[in-house]
Design a protein around this nucleic acid. Structure first.
Length: 430
RNA sequence: CGGGCUGUGGCGCAGUGGUAGCGCGCUUCGUUCGGGACGAAGAGGCCGCGGGUUCAAGUCCCGCCAGCCCGACCA
C-alpha cells in the first residue's frame, strides 16, 4: 500500500480537545476521526487494527466451539417488557418509529439471543451450545470520555452460552476465561482477572483489567494474582494480601477490556426457555455471557504501548508489519533506482505474507521518520542513496533505538526469522 | 446530571469596540534531499448558533449548542 494514496493523514499538531493519549495519538496519526463525543470513524489505518483485534477474538471464540452469528442492533420494546429491563438499563438508547412504536438500540443482546436460541434448541441433546457476534453496541453514557475507552457507540464481541447444568456452565466458564487471556496476550495486553460484582444477575463475575493511567476503574491487587474491583473490594492499599498472606495490596488504575458473568436462569426463565430432558422432563437452561470490547482494546493498546514519538503496535495488531520508506535523491538515475528497489521490495514482502506500507511521498526524511514513529508500525525499512551504495536497506524496529543495515538480498530471509512481525495467514475468514 | 475550561481557514493558535491575522497544511514554479528544508506566487472565513446593546460587535450583555477535563453514573 502506498502511503501517498492512503486516505487519512497525520497532523503535526495534536487536536486540542483530544486529551487522552489514545485519542490524541490515534487522531494525530490518522487512525480515527471523531464525529461526536464517544463516537468515531475508523479510517483505513484504524480499521485495519480494529479488524485484526476482532479476528483474534474471532479465532479464540471459534476455538472455544462458539459459532458466529449476527443479530440486529435495532430492538423492539416488547422483548424488554418480557425481562423487565426497559427502564432498568439506564444507558439504553430509546427511539420511536411510525405509529409511536418504540425501539431500542442494542446495548447488550440477552433479550435477542435468548428467544432466538429457544426457537432452535428444544432438547438437552443440543446443549451445551454457544453463539457470539461482533457488533457495534450503543450505550447512552452520561459521560463519554478518554477516546476509545468509553464511547457511546463501540465495537463489542458478545458471547452467550447455554447449558443444562451449573456444573457444565462452570466448566465452560473456565474455558472462556482461558480464551480471554489468550485474546489479550495476543493483543499485547497484560490483562489480569479481577473479581467483580455480578450486577443484578448473580453474586460474582470476573473482569479482565489492564493497568493504565487513563483507566476508569480502581483495582486492589497483589503480586500473587489476587485482584478485586473497588466496587466489591474488602481490602485497601497497604493491607496484607488475604489470599497469599505474604504480599501487600496495591491500588492501580485500570481499564476493563472484558467481562464474563453467569446469568444463571435470569433470562431463560423470563422467556420460559426449557428443554426436554432424557426422561422427557423439562430442564432449566443455565446461561452465561461474555463480553470483549475490541475498540476499547484498541484504545488500551495505545495507552500501554507508546512513547513520546507515537504509538508502538504489538505485532498482531499493527496496521501493517513493515513501513517502507524511500528517501529521494537529486540524482535522477539514483532516484529511479530507489523507486524500483522499493517497488520490488514491496512486491516480494507482500508475496511472503508481510503487509507493507510504503511511504512513497515526495517528502523529506525528517517528515517521513516522524510519521513512521507516530504511526508505530513494528519494522521500518529505509531505502536511500546511502543504503543502495551498500546494496542494503536500513532496518529499524520501532521498539528499539538502534538501526542496522541489511543486505537487499538477505531481507526476505531476515524477515522470515524475526518473531516480532505478524504474518498474513490464509485461514482467516474470507 | 452538577462544576471548570474551550469554541476564529483542514489542524494548532493570536486578535486592545473601528478593513480577519499568524504558524503548519494545501495549490503552482524553482532550488533542496537521512530527523518535520528554502524562495516566490496563490487559494481557502456564517469568528459555534440565536437574540440584545452600540453609529459600529470576533471583542460587551443574555440565552442556547458543542467538545474536553473533574465529579456523580457505569446492565
Amino acid at each position: 500500500m502506498k502511503y501517498s494514496t492512503l486516505f487519512g493523514k497525520t497532523t503535526k499538531s495534536a487536536p486540542h480537545d483530544a486529551q487522552s493519549t489514545n485519542a490524541r495519538l490515534l487522531t494525530q496519526a490518522g487512525f480515527i476521526n471523531q464525529l461526536m463525543a464517544g463516537v468515531y470513524t475508523y479510517l483505513p489505518l484504524g480499521l485495519r487494527v480494529l479488524k485484526k483485534i476482532q479476528d483474534i477474538v474471532r479465532g479464540e471464540m471459534n476455538a472455544l466451539g462458539a459459532q458466529e452469528i449476527y443479530m440486529p442492533a435495532l430492538h423492539p420494546k416488547d422483548i424488554y417488557d418480557t425481562t423487565g429491563r426497559w427502564d432498568k438499563i439506564d444507558v439504553l438508547f430509546k427511539l420511536e418509529g411510525h405509529g409511536e412504536k418504540e425501539y431500542a438500540l442494542g446495548s447488550t443482546h440477552e433479550e435477542v439471543v435468548t428467544p432466538l436460541v429457544q426457537q432452535y434448541i428444544r432438547s438437552y441433546k443440543d446443549l451445551p451450545m454457544a453463539v457470539y457476534q461482533i457488533q457495534d453496541k450503543f450505550r447512552n453514557e452520561p459521560r463519554a470520555k478518554s477516546g476509545l475507552l468509553r464511547g457511546r457507540e463501540f465495537s463489542m464481541k458478545d458471547l452467550y452460552s447455554f447449558h443444562t447444568s451449573e456444573e457444565d456452565f462452570l466448566q465452560f466458564y473456565e474455558r472462556a476465561k482461558q480464551a480471554y487471556l489468550n485474546v489479550f496476550r495476543r493483543c499485547g495486553l497484560d490483562a489480569m482477572i479481577v473479581e467483580a460484582g455480578g450486577g443484578v444477575f448473580s453474586k460474582f463475575s470476573h473482569e479482565f483489567q489492564v493497568a493504565t493511567e487513563n483507566g476508569e476503574d480502581l483495582v486492589y491487587r497483589c503480586a500473587c494474582g489476587f485482584a478485586q474491583n473497588r466496587e466489591i473490594a474488602e481490602v485497601k492499599a497497604g493491607d496484607p494480601c488475604p489470599s497469599c498472606q505474604k504480599g501487600i495490596i496495591e491500588e492501580i488504575k485500570t481499564i476493563e477490556v472484558g467481562n464474563i458473568f453467569p446469568l444463571k436462569t435470569r433470562f431463560t426463565d423470563a422467556f420460559g426457555f426449557k428443554v426436554a430432558g432424557p426422561n422427557n422432563e423439562m430442564m432449566e437452561v443455565v446461561m452465561g455471557c461474555y463480553g470483549i470490547g475490541p475498540s476499547r482494546v484498541m484504545g488500551s493498546i495505545v495507552e500501554v504501548h507508546h512513547d513520546e514519538r507515537g504509538m508502538i503496535w504489538p505485532k498482531q495488531t499493527a496496521p501493517f508489519a513493515v513501513q517502507l520508506i524511500s528517501l529521494s535523491s537529486k540524482d535522477a538515475t539514483l532516484r529511479e533506482n530507489i523507486e524500483e528497489t522499493c517497488a520490488s521490495l514491496e512486491k516480494d514482502l507482500e508475496a511472503s505474507g508481510v503487509e507493507v506500507l510504503w511511504d512513497d511521498r515526495d517528502a523529506g526524511a525528517g517528515e517521513k521518520f516522524a510519521d513512521a514513529d507516530l504511526i508505530g508500525i513494528p519494522l521500518r525499512i529505509v531505502v536511500s542513496e546511502k543504503t543502495l551504495a551498500e546494496e542494503s536497506v536500513e532496518w529499524k524496529e520501532r521498539s528499539e533505538t538502534q538501526s542496522r543495515f541489511v543486505k537487499l538480498a538477505d531481507i526476505i530471509e531476515e524477515i522470515n526469522e524475526v518473531t516480532f512481525l505478524d504474518r498474513k495467514t490464509k485461514t482467516a475468514h474470507a
